[in-house]
Every structure is written in C-alpha cells, then in structure tokens.
Design a binder for these strands. Sequence first.
RNA 1: GCGCGAUUAGCUCAGUUGGUAGAGCACUCGAUUUACACUCGAGAUGUCGCAGGUUCGAGCCCUGCAUCGCGCACCA
Length: 724
Amino acid sequence: MIPEKLLKPYNPKETEERIYKLWEESGFFNPDSLPTERYPLNAKRFSIVMPPTNANGSLHAGHGLVMAVEDIMIRYKRMRGYKTLWLPGLDHAGFETQVVYEKQLEKEGRSRFAIEPKKLYEEILDFTLNNSANIKSQVRKMGASCDWSREKFTLDPDIVKTVYTTFKKLGDDGLIYRGNRIVSWCPKHQTSFSDLEIEDVEKTEPFYYLKYGPFTISTSRPETKFGDKYVVMHPKDNRYEKYKDGQKIELEWISGKITATVVKDEVIDMEFGTGVMTITPWHDPVDFEISERHGLLKEQIIDERGKLLPIAGEFAGMSIVKARPLVVEKLKAKGLLEKVDEKYKHVVRTCYKCGTTIEPQIRNQWFIKMKPLAEKALQKINAGEITYIPEHYKKITVHWLENIRDWNISRQIVWGIPIPAKICAACGSGFIDLENKIGTCEKCGGELTPDKDTFDTWFSSGQWPFAVLEFPDGNDFKNFYPTDVMETAGEIIFFWVARMIMLGLYITGKVPFKIVYLHGLVLDAKGQKMSKSKGNVINPLDLTAKYGTDAFRMGLVIGNTPGTSLALSEDKIRAYKHFANKFWNIARFVIENTEGETTEAHFTEYSPKDAALQKELQTALSDVTVDMDAYRFYLAAEKLYHYAWHNLADRILEESKDILKNASLEEKRSRKQFLIHTLDKILRALHPFIPFVTEEIWQLWKQPTAKEQMLMVAEWPTAAKGRP
RNA sequence: GCGCGAUUAGCUCAGUUGGUAGAGCACUCGAUUUACACUCGAGAUGUCGCAGGUUCGAGCCCUGCAUCGCGCACCA
C-alpha cells in the first residue's frame, strides 16, 4: 500500500520537528552511540567544533549558513562511516554582549555606570541564559545534527579553568607582561581594545597651523595640545640645524608661558607640513613611542570619558568635541593660529561598535607577546599543515601574522571571565594568582587588590577547540583533536581563526584544525549588508517556516562559493521548496509504480537501456562524491538537483510511463529495479543537503523497524573517492 | 602607501586539471482530467571589464590598465 501521506504535497511544517526528534532520540548525534556494526571502535573519526554562538540575540541568516554547511559536512562523513562529532557551544561574547545589553539599558533610561558591577553581571547573565534557550531551539530547527550532550558555554567552570591555566602558562613562559602602555580607548564604552576592534575611517577635517615659539606646528586636534612641551624635528633637517637636541625654549602657548624642549627623532617626516611637531605622549601612539625613546615626561590631558582635565584651564571638564572650536578661538585671539587648511583628509581611528573616535590612553594592562606565538603558527601554515578554503585566506593570514602586534587582553567591562590577578595599589604591579595565594606586592610590599578587568572574549574563544575537547586528559581530546574542519566567517579570520591556531599550537603542540573553511557574508536580495537600522534583516526562522528548512539550506548552499558573499533572495528559496516537493513526487511515482516489486540489492538483469542509465547514475554520483571530498558543496548540490529534476524526473520517469505500460515483462522488471535502485541512491546522496524530506521519504518507503536503519546512518551511495 | 578579491545572460551567481559558454529567478510561445500547476515542452538573451602575450586551442595561464569592494598601515 502506498503511504497515504505521499499522496499529499510535502509538508515541511508537519515533518521537521518529528524527524528531528527521531534523530535526536536515536542518540546518533553522539559519536559514542553510533551503531557499532557500521561504526566499530577503530572507525575513522571526523570532528568539527561549532563556532560558539553569541548568546546575545537570536539566530541570523549567517548562522543559518554555518548550520547548513557544517551539517552537510557532518552528515556526509557520518554516512561514509566516520564517527562524527559536531560539538555545539555558546559564547558569552564579552564586549559584544555588553554592548547589546547597554543599548537595552539606554532604552530603559539606565546606564551601566550607575549599576553596581556585581548586579550588572547578574543581569547580563540572566539575559544571556534567556537567549541561549532560544538559540538552541533555533539550531535544532536548522536540522543541525550536533552532539547536544557535549554542549559547552565559554563561562562553564571547566572552560574557565582551561583559560586560567593558559594565562598562567603564558605568564610562566614570559609571554605575558603588564605594561603601562598606550592602548586604544573608547570614551563611550570606557574600555580598551586590541588593534582589531579599531576601525579606520577616512575623514575630512580642518587642519590647524599653530605658532609654537619660533616654529610652526600643525595639528587636526588643537584641543589636545595643552600639555605639549616637546618639539620634535628630524636630526638631519637643515632648516632646524641651529636648534640642538635638549635645547630649552621659552614660548607663549595656549594657557601662558611654557618652557619647551627640542627633541631630535628620525620618525619625523621632513616632507610633511613644516617638518616640526609637538607631542602628546599620553594620547598618541607615535608620540608615546618618541617619549619612550627619549625618556620624556607624559601627561594626561583627557580623562576616561573623553573630557578635558584641569590642565586645560578654563576648558577643563569639557568634552573634546565641545572644546575644539573654543580652543581654536582662543588660539586665534592670542595670535597663535597661523592658518587653517579646511579640507584635510586623514584617517581617524574609531570604535568598531559605536564609531566614537578612539582616544588613546596610557593604562596599565595585560599584554601577550605575540611574536613567538605567531612564528610557530607561521611555520605550520607555511609547511602546509592547514588547508585554507578558499586558498587566498592563507596569504591574508600569513601577512597578518608576519606583522603581528602584542595583544592587549584586558577589558574594563564586567561581562567576561575575570582576570585571575592581583594588582598593587602602590606601584601598579600585577601578579597572576590562580589560587589566591599572593598576599602582598612582591616588588614593593604594597597592598594588593584583585584585578577588576576581564579577559578579551577572544582570549577564551581562542582556546575553544582544545578547551571543549577537555585538554589534556579528556578522551575527546585524544579521539578528536586536532579537529578536521573549522568552518566560520571570513570576517573573523584574525579575531578568532589565527588566534586559535596560535593558542592551540602553544598549549597542545598541534594545530587545532586541518582545514579552515571560510564563508562570506549573507546579504539581502539586493546584495546589501543586513542591518536592523536598514530594516532588511532576514530572519531564518521566517524562511524555514514559509518554505521549509530543506529549501532554506539549499538556497544558502547552491551558488555560494566559499569566501564570497551571498545575496539571499526569497525567490531562490522558493525555487528549492519547489524542488523538495518535486522530489517528494519523484518518490511517490517510484513507490507507486514499483509496488509489490521486491528490492534486489544486486540486480544484474538490466535491459541495455537501463544498464546505460545505471552507468550514468554511477558517473553522476562519483562526480558528486569528488565534489563532496573537495568541499565543493555548491557544485555537488547543484549537480544532484539537476540529476533528480532534469534526468530522473523529466527524462527517466517520463519514458518509464510507457515502458511500465507497454514493454515486455523483462523490461518492466528491469525498469522497476532501476527505479528502486535510483531512488535509494539519490535519497542517500541528497540527505546531507535536504535531510528532512529525504529522511521522511525513507521512513515512509522502507518503514524501518530499528533506528539503525535510519537514512541518517545509511551508507553513502558510492564508494568512489575524490581528492582528499 | 602595501596587500587581497571581484568584473561572465535583464537580476543573483556557477564554471573543479586550458578543449563547442551554464544554473536559478525573470521573459516569450505552447501543452493540460497529471507522480508533481510547487507541472511539462520549446525558445530568446553573452566581443566572459579593456589591451597585449603564451598555446593547435584561453572565461580559465602570463603582463599591463580600468572600475568596484575589502583588509592592513603611528605621517603630526
């Protein structure tokens, strides 16, 4: 009897939840619970650690792509007999989450700075936990066959322990230092950043030429110049030959008479402006370096909120934005303003989140010396131990690693893993202290207080692969590390991927993954970046509800080459909904027309015509397998789509109508066997891409009596092997 | 300034090692008690950014240029 359900159109809504439950309850998402007959103890293993989802919102289209692509990899390998582990996780996403939460506070008319830190932490934790439940159900809706029993969160005690151990080891190896160094500071968020959180924006602003004693100096930031008492020029600049290094000059400046000191330094570009500049070491990285080289005094002009300090005289307490025109006015009144170039183009460093101009500040922070870590990573990458898909990301990574800078890992926010260190109130020294053992400052005997800062979130996620696999003693670490593939967004290649390689190598001695597969952004139908303010955000759940998850997955995968952005249009997804239904009907035709025919696994009496078709199918399948092994899912999916629709349905099924009606008994039997055989193979081959509809058809058709007979753990339809 | 991509049909994009240019959507004409209207058949649409070069043969390899996008960079 043909199952009643097959007579109606395919209904994803009715199917998906039930099928996912079937899979999940089988336990087969867990590599340890796979049927031992097909997956013996010595079976090959395949593992992917899922990029931990930021627990501060809900799934967006980009997550949809992650889930689709990684699930395809995992399902494919599982069908090929690998014990597959796909380990899901959530990221507290320190600063990112804090920003999201602060926006919410703003709407409520509250400010993070008015909330007691402990209370704020509790609130954000609640917020995060609320989101996580939601996110997890969304990941399930995408059909992700990940092992929920191994799920991890970046704030889990064992992860934190690993992070602390790494911090300690870095310290013991002399790779961590606490330095009073210039850092990038966002006055709005009031935290420091690493160089990656900075966005360079080209701006056109007035450029002021100011009289500084006998010199003319130029600046785009007159409001920072109050404390400038060093005037710097190139030692070989003939124009200023008569001024000697260290020479004192009395001159009239913004707030009155000062004594300036001449400094000669080779960083000065003689061609630029007048070849003379004054320096503001507390608030400019170049100036900081100069003052370090020459042992000059440094003075803070701007506070943490971006307001001027008492040194600015009558401007004290003013924000720099307000102060600038007033300072210019005063300079003008004093006759110190020589000229203004109104259209000066230059690069301004801004906070990547809020666009506020970065105000560099000198702060005592924890830094990691990156050079030694980067060198090891470069060796492995250059030796080809990591394959990049697409390839050009390798060059980008190498370039970044070769020019790496030290990593400031201190963040002045509450939402994160606290830095396990003590700070001396008297001398500012810091001591890594995991066991709360150090009582007084080892340098000056001063009193110690716990470090109030938290780690940069990437410091913890940078250790994710070995941390979640429970390095060093976990069985998972032995069985699944290094992982096979790291699939994530090309956007975070430095933030995350490169750092995982460095930290993974440093701690375990091995690269954390063999293949890096990077996908591009998911854009809207017009190719524009999705953003809440533009109102063009596509919610994956709306699309899966409307067209089914299988259609959504196909739409994300086909025509999407790694590394390239994808414009996601609803038309495209609708087209693959049609495909799911088409395939449903192919199955219905085959099942209806082969009723009563027993399946013979190795049928040998094909008619010449069917033998040819059989060969054609084999070729198509091995071709697809080659693509699968080469991670060309966009091609594999398209080929299967084409075969199923335009070969199987349009050609083979159409001509079968005549054969099944009019041909000889032998020919009929041959065709029926071929149809059964083909449907079986195509169901298997399409399963990684459209898991729900294929499993549903499989269940209706084969009516398996044991969970081991699910399509999810069935064998891939060809033994052919592509390139590794 | 240095580096990395992209440029192929009206739109969005494929094109794996060089061998007669492809898909989806859109478009035109036709079919209809059908496995499927979430359908089928037929069709139109391309100097593959430009200029050279290598080759029997180039969308693909090499050189240069243009346009767009991105990343990196301490010029006050």
